[in-house]
């Protein structure tokens, strides 16, 4: 399975993401830059975390209007899998590929710690290597991860099973509505999440709970 990683000025988790994809799939992902209008023929496009364009205007707002993101949106419409982590999640929301918005953490503080995540929907192309309701460990590091959606949107995504990850009881680090940590689109090929599964894939990280997400999305049996 071939993958590509989107590079934008100000992202800083791109190397971690490339390392995770390379180690788990056995192949280095292609990389695409902000001005690229063509994305190579891949099965998975990943937008890593960081602070693209200095978080100017709103997190992910400027990145969402770049040529490369227009190309990502076209690929997503064709059914290519797209995953955004942290700033990548914010960018996918600003692009309109995912429902809702991410706001400043309710605590107003940057949070950098480990949380527990519940796999709220294991019946997705992304989470199929997890058990339904499985609780996993995962690091978070963000200032704007407070998920919000209006009541109608919230009811719709909850009803459709589009809430893929939730912060487990008592570990919500940012005030997200319904403890939402990750959502996917209705078609099921675009996922965004605030936590960093790429930073918990091997013993050197202190655990490998994030690995199954990559194994699922890359179609690799655990």
């Amino acid at each position: 399975m071939k993958s590509a990683v989107v590079l934008l000025p100000g992202l800083n988790r791109d190397r971690d993401m490339i390392a995770a994809l390379t180690k788990i799939s056995g192949h280095a992902p292609a990389t695409v830059w902000q001005t690229d209008t063509v994305i190579p023929d891949v099965d998975l496009i990943v937008i890593p975390g960081g602070f693209s364009y200095g978080d100017y205007l709103r997190c992910g707002a400027i990145a969402a209007r770049t040529p490369v993101m227009r190309a990502v949106a076209e690929k997503a419409a064709q059914g290519v899998m797209v995953m955004g982590v942290c700033n990548g999640f914010q960018i996918l929301l600003e692009t309109g590929l995912l429902p809702g918005a991410l706001m400043r953490n309710a605590s107003l503080k940057f949070v950098c710690r480990e949380v527990k995540l519940e796999v709220a929907n294991a019946n997705t192309a992304f989470t199929r290597a997890y058990e339904p309701g499985q609780i996993i460990r995962c690091p978070v590091a963000h200032h704007d991860g407070n998920y919000f959606a209006d009541p109608e949107t919230l009811a719709r995504i909850e009803g459709n099973g589009q809430v893929v990850f939730r912060y487990a009881e008592g570990t919500n680090p940012n005030g997200s509505i319904n403890n939402i940590a990750g959502v996917m689109n209705e078609a099921g090929n675009v996922l965004g999440l605030m936590p960093h599964p790429e930073n918990l894939i091997e013993a050197a990280h202190g655990g490998s709970d994030g690995r199954a997400l990559f194994e699922g999305v890359l179609g690799i049996a655990a």
């Binding site: 709103r58 707002a61 209007r65 809702g100 918005a101 706001m103 919000f148 959606a149 209006d150």
Partner: peptide
């Protein structure tokens, strides 16, 4: 609509 506001919020 396109940039200055996020009309979701």
């Amino acid at each position: 609509e396109k940039l200055l506001a996020n009309t979701v919020i």
